[in-house]
Design a protein around this nucleic acid. Structure first.
Lengths: 185, 185
DNA sequence: TGATACATGTAAGGGGTTACATGATTTC
DNA sequence: GAAATCATGTAACCCCTTACATGTATCA
């Protein structure tokens, strides 16, 4: 899947592995992320498969960059993927829920403390979606008005994050209240 | 982390890898899952580390089972983990959001079709949380009343799923409406 | 002076999936 | 007669993380 994230970005314009990492960190990080080392490895594989080409670009007083460009074959592959609906919910792993599931031996106070930590974390995440993430999309659209259609979808993914995080905070509030009332000692 | 899922279940009672798989599939699957092959591998590692012990149990007309029991060291390790708060939100990977992010080239109808598929999937997930998952917790509590405290937490993880899935369905409805109104062609 | 940004890459190891192997019993 | 259930395990492979290596320029 990282493959398609990289092709998706390269379909906007050619760029280096380092650039791709920064774009991901700023836009898709909350639903798709990757380490630089893995990005370099995957780019190499994409080039071997003929989905991208690369060429080194010299720079003054900076290391050389290797700039990747999507090929026609790469675009075909990307379009095929975009046109294929997802028919299953991706199974997720949530360490906090796993821990909570087995936490009956915890004291009431420890349990509440852990729930409050989670509440803070998710509230901060909401704030980020509403400020930084929203601003970034706005700025990009102002600078590149031809990406208006794209921006609608970028904002839909942002809203997804915002709405889900709000639901999680509500759940944590409800759970804190429940523990307060019903959890003995 | 699978390590702690296994220790958590074995802390209720000794059981085999096969049993553990079934318990996971019925209870934690929505926030933690594993394949049988990986469970067997992890159990072996846990035994090498002295956190569980195992012994083969013969059966009539069924293959032998290897039953694992948590050790005192295993319980210490589990308790330590339960007492350690999670200070970060686990980064997730959501294939559908990644695809949506890059879907500006899709036709309006294809986009809407994909969103409707997702809506159906998540609505079914809500139903499952409200019926099967809720019933299972209820039944277990009736059969084992000493697990009432545990059941409060099991139900909290169930509610988490229910609330988040409801938020996702609301987001999909909102997004479908947005695409209908604002997405050209 | 030490950290951070820029820029690419390799090596080792962890965790996970898929496929394969075995073999009896039960269910459709 | 075929498929599913019970039951454990190995092998190959893939993806990912962490750590390491290299080297200049800028910023605090």
């Amino acid at each position: 899947m990282l493959k398609y994230a990289l092709l998706g970005f390269l379909n906007y314009r050619p760029m280096s592995g380092y650039d791709l990492k920064q774009f991901m960190d700023q836009s898709t990080a909350n639903f798709w992320h990757a380490k630089l080392s893995q990005i370099y490895i995957t780019l190499k594989a994409l080039e071997e498969d003929g989905l991208v080409t690369s060429s080194p670009v010299a720079q003054e007083s900076r290391p050389d960059r290797r700039v990747y460009t999507i090929t026609a074959q790469g675009q075909t592959d990307l379009t095929k993927w975009i046109n294929t609906p997802e028919f299953e919910i991706a199974p997720s792993k949530e360490p906090f829920l796993l821990k909570l599931f087995f936490s009956a031996q915890l004291s009431k106070e420890s349990l509440l403390a852990q729930l409050r930590i989670q509440r803070d974390l998710h509230q901060k995440q909401i704030d980020q979606y509403q400020t930084e993430t929203a601003d970034l999309i706005k700025q990009t659209t102002e600078r590149a008005p031809h990406l208006l259609k794209d921006a609608l979808l970028w904002n839909a993914t942002r809203r997804s994050g915002e709405i889900i995080e709000e639901a999680i905070v509500r759940w944590l509030d409800e759970t804190i209240e429940m523990i307060n009332k019903e959890f003995s000692a």
